[in-house]
Design a protein around this nucleic acid. Structure first.
Lengths: 247, 247
DNA sequence: CCCTTATGCCAACATGATTGACCTTAACCC
DNA sequence: GGGTTAAGGTCAATCATGTTGGCATAAGGG
């Protein structure tokens, strides 16, 4: 069996499967994404993926060291898609906002996959490219390295964290929407005002808001704070040019 | 077998297991937490939990509809612990900061359990109590209902999202710390400056920062923003008292 | 055109959740 | 206390899962 997985770039012989399909990392990853979309978060199994590809499950181990390795490749694909839909304008703030939203959107487009991968560090090329891009935007905007690293850290973790969280409820909505919405309706909305006055008072407002993601709001909050930090750093570097910005 | 799970409060006969232990929801949940802590994120299995309790695995189905149900109970336990370590002071901002950190800390104390449960909505009593508390703090501070709901939403999702994310890396550090730190050292820190100048320039700073959570920073950012919003709302309600705060 | 070996397939194994049938004994009633 | 009942324990079986060892075959370099 697969003692060692052959790197995709060094793959020479491509033998078609019994049912005719020719395998590749990319094909496997995309099929895996489709399985997750169609069969839910638990729908990605070696057996099922095998049959979907017209191949034996064990064949997958020629391409990936295990399902865990495949999972990382899926995460890499989501990151890559985000990066592909994004273009730089040169204005750091809108660039970061757009990049964050692109990542968030890319993950939400495949919620089940996102849940599996959002908290994993793949260390693969496209993910590294995203990190390099973010740091480049911040340093290019004039953030001192110390500040750039703080903002980078907050930005990427915030984005991935919300991607995972929001994808989680989307995935559940797809999978067990009935049970969960029923929970909301039957539990929260029915709480009596004498035991839970605040929930009861805002139940209608909550119902309207909890369907949206809080990510855009929090992201803008972070970028605002970073902008103040930047102005402060600039003022310190060129003293006498003006007063410190809003403290 | 267990057609229907008997509610904990209506449980009457407590028959000791073959090995003498007397079961209860609480005992099962705590044992499950211990298993997760000792055997890692994948270490919670019906078989293993059964033997740890000195009971047949199938016995668990007398207490929980399935492992999924047990998972929700674990989440409820984490929420309860957070609420127990928290006390109100009456100052909305420090109260919210303390509550957020308590939830975050409670989840991080059991990282593997947190990963399993952070993105689930349990709808159980302690979780509802937390929601009621947050809304109460905000409305008590004078936030109009519309604003209170926005801040509540951002606050709870931010906290849970970071709990999940940070717990994820903690859990992995416990489980595959070697592979992951090796990844960081061998991949990110070794990137050549000509292809990845920004990562190379900040590698040392990154290594020092990525071990900490970005949650406190982002939380304070959110609370600052909320404070401005509150001042704005107050000014609008009592016009002429002063000028609008920082816009 | 032959030889090597990469790559696909088959069968098997260990372990997972879950369930149906059964049995034991705690709890309640008299 | 003794009898009755069913809650709550156990047992054995089912079926799905990831993963691996051994084998076969065709791709492609020489």
């Amino acid at each position: 069996m697969a003692k060692q997985v052959v790197a995709e770039t060094e793959r020479r012989r491509r033998r078609p499967t019994r049912q005719g399909t020719v395998l590749s990392e990319k094909l496997i990853v995309r099929t895996a994404l489709r399985m997750l979309r169609e069969h839910g978060g638990t729908g990605l199994t070696a057996r099922r993926l095998g049959t979907a590809l017209g191949a034996d499950p064990s064949t997958l181990y020629r391409y990936f060291a295990g399902l865990d390795d495949l999972t990382r490749a899926i995460g890499e694909e989501l990151m890559g898609r985000a990066l592909d839909t994004w273009t730089a304008t040169g204005e750091w703030r809108s660039d970061l906002r757009a990049l964050g939203r692109a990542i968030h959107a890319s993950y939400l487009a495949d919620p089940q996959a996102a849940v599996l991968t959002a908290s994993r560090v793949t260390g693969r090329p496209r993910e590294i490219a995203v990190d390099e891009t973010i740091l480049g935007i911040l340093r290019g905007a004039g953030f001192p390295d110390v500040d750039a690293v703080v903002v980078y850290h907050a930005f990427i973790d915030l984005t991935l964290a919300f991607a995972a969280l929001d994808a989680g409820s989307l995935a559940l909505t797809e999978q067990a929407r009935v049970a969960d919405e029923e929970m909301w309706r039957s539990t929260y909305a029915e709480l009596p005002a004498d035991t839970h006055p605040h929930i009861a008072a805002t139940a209608r407002l909550l119902a309207g808001r909890m369907n949206h993601s809080a990510y855009p709001v929090v992201l803008d909050t972070l970028l605002n704070s970073a902008a103040e930090q930047l102005a402060w750093a600039r003022a310190r570097r060129t003293p006498g040019t003006g007063s410190a910005p809003n403290p």
